[in-house]
């Protein structure tokens, strides 16, 4: 299968997107913004419809709309601080309704929408591959240089702001990067399943490790394995790549969660668990001065 140019491009593009989407997923989940990827993909669909309606490149217009949608959701989020998921619902409705109206105005384009909705390995052309390369490079730089500020902000934005971090600017950049990744991932997995590539690897990784950096690396490994095996299965079974990748990732999640439960059950029965339980309850009060030499 790798002797086909389109499959080589699909695997290369899939690997690029799997890496950055999985890292993004960890941050989105911990910031309680797991639905943001779904929302942006729907907004992006409005951009694709607008591009086709106006005779522009649907890829470029979808990309731009997703980025604008990401910035918009950040502004709306500031109005609904306590209910941040409300901003996602508001922008998603706006994006989807615009897409539906624009599609109804141009009935000849409904066929080409199938590949946007469900993904297609042949949809990845050279220009899209170049776009994915640029997005991956930008996202990799962003996540590498801002990994510590992002970690702090994931816990609590107010404490991060008091520590001197420019939280507003970083949040805005994070939203823009999210929009870019979602738009770049769309040709392969499609609008309806783009969030599976972002959320499922992260959902499993954060269950399996108690270290943040390990969670990021594990998510990338799960994402890569899911995309590669999903694309292979999609080629062999002639099924849509988006749905196949999502099903493989779901299977990984189910197996991972079940395995973890089994391991916990086995451990709970062992003497080791009893020892760590004792340790959990054996910590003392805050030491009085003089009792602890580490106060000097």
């Amino acid at each position: 299968m790798l002797h086909y140019d389109f499959m080589q491009r699909a695997f290369f593009a899939g690997a690029l997107i799997a890496v950055v989407a999985s890292v993004l997923g960890v941050y989105l989940m911990l910031r309680r913004q797991a639905l943001m990827a779904d929302m942006l993909s729907h907004v992006s669909l409005a951009g694709v419809a607008a591009g086709a309606f106006l005779g522009l490149s649907p890829t470029l217009s979808g990309f731009l709309t997703a980025t604008i949608g990401a910035v918009a959701v950040e502004y709306v989020r500031r109005f609904y601080k306590t209910y941040s998921e409300m901003s996602i619902a508001i922008i998603m409705v706006g994006g989807l309704s615009t897409a539906v109206v624009l599609m109804s105005l141009n009935k000849t384009m409904s066929k080409s929408f199938t590949s946007y909705l469900f993904g297609s390995v042949v949809a990845v052309d050279r220009s899209q591959l170049l776009l994915m390369l640029i997005v991956t490079a930008a996202a990799a730089l962003f996540f590498f240089f801002l990994r510590r500020p992002l970690y702090q902000m994931t816990f609590d934005e107010e404490t991060a702001k008091v520590s001197g971090l420019p939280t507003g600017l970083i949040s805005m950049l994070f939203s823009v990067i999210t929009g870019m990744i979602v738009a770049a991932a769309m040709p392969i997995v499609g609008v309806l399943l783009v969030s599976s590539l972002i959320i499922l690897p992260a959902a499993l990784a954060i269950r399996l490790t108690s270290r943040f950096s390990a969670a990021l690396l594990l998510a990338v490994a799960i994402g890569l394995a899911g995309v590669m095996s999903g694309l292979t299965a999609s080629y062999e079974l002639s099924t849509p790549p988006g749905g196949t990748i999502a099903l493989v990732l779901l299977a990984f999640l189910a197996i991972g969660v079940a395995s973890q439960k089994v391991v916990r059950l086995v451990r709970a029965k062992s003497k080791h668990a009893a020892a760590t339980d004792t340790e959990m309850h054996s910590y003392g009060p805050i030491p009085r001065l003089g009792e602890d030499s580490h106060t000097s």
Partner: peptide, 11 residues
């Protein structure tokens, strides 16, 4: 340098 410990950290 300023540090803040809020009442609840939601995350």
């Amino acid at each position: 340098k300023v540090s803040y410990v809020p009442q609840q950290i939601a995350a």
